[in-house]
């Protein structure tokens, strides 16, 4: 909602400043949106299917207790696969934390969720090519793992 208001305000300001530029910008933006729409639909269908197939309590059960390094790896994998907005992911992280899931596991999940995108790969490939998309996602996965390790170090979770 706020986003819509911000956008409308920007359009009005831009229009007041320069009609031609604004129209060109609107046209360009809409064209770009239509170009990306097919890849977007594929991503949405895959994400919905994946979320529907995984039972909800399986996620929290497999992330707490047991081997925390394995759980962190699961977090990395889940975060790389999932597509969800921050206003869902962080409340979820808070819930998991309350259930005793270590910070390093939560960080592995939220960090890879934001940085790595397997389902958005087709879109990234379309913009920058396969090689770049592959390298950037791999590097981001490594960074997420290092962030998780740093969390484990700072919060004293590395040793059981």
């Amino acid at each position: 909602m706020e986003f819509l208001l911000v956008t409308l305000a920007v359009i009005v300001l831009s229009f007041a400043a320069d009609k031609g530029k604004t129209l060109a910008g609107l046209k360009g933006g809409i064209r770009k949106f239509l170009n990306i729409l097919p890849a977007l639909m594929v991503m949405l269908i895959l994400a919905s299917l994946a979320l529907a197939l995984v039972p909800e309590d399986l996620i929290s059960r497999s992330l707490s207790g047991g081997n925390r390094y394995l759980a962190a790896l699961l977090g990395l994998a889940g975060g790389s696969l999932a597509v969800m907005p921050g206003f869902i992911a962080f409340p979820l992280g808070g819930i998991l934390r309350n259930q005793g899931v270590p910070y390093m596991v939560i960080a592995a999940f939220t960090s890879s969720l934001m940085m790595v995108g397997i389902l958005t790969f087709p879109v990234e490939k379309q913009f920058f090519g396969t090689r770049f998309a592959l390298v950037r996602n791999l590097v981001s996965l490594i960074i997420s793992a290092l962030v998780a390790l740093a969390m484990g170090l700072v919060f004293g979770e590395l040793l059981p």
């Binding site: 986003f3 530029k21 910008g25 609107l26 933006g29 809409i30 770009k32």
Partner: peptide
């Protein structure tokens, strides 16, 4: 549907300006 059209319009304007 609530976010993306707005985002792309902002991007279009960004590119124009």
């Amino acid at each position: 549907a609530a976010i993306l059209p707005c985002a792309f319009i902002l991007i279009g304007l960004f590119e124009a300006w």
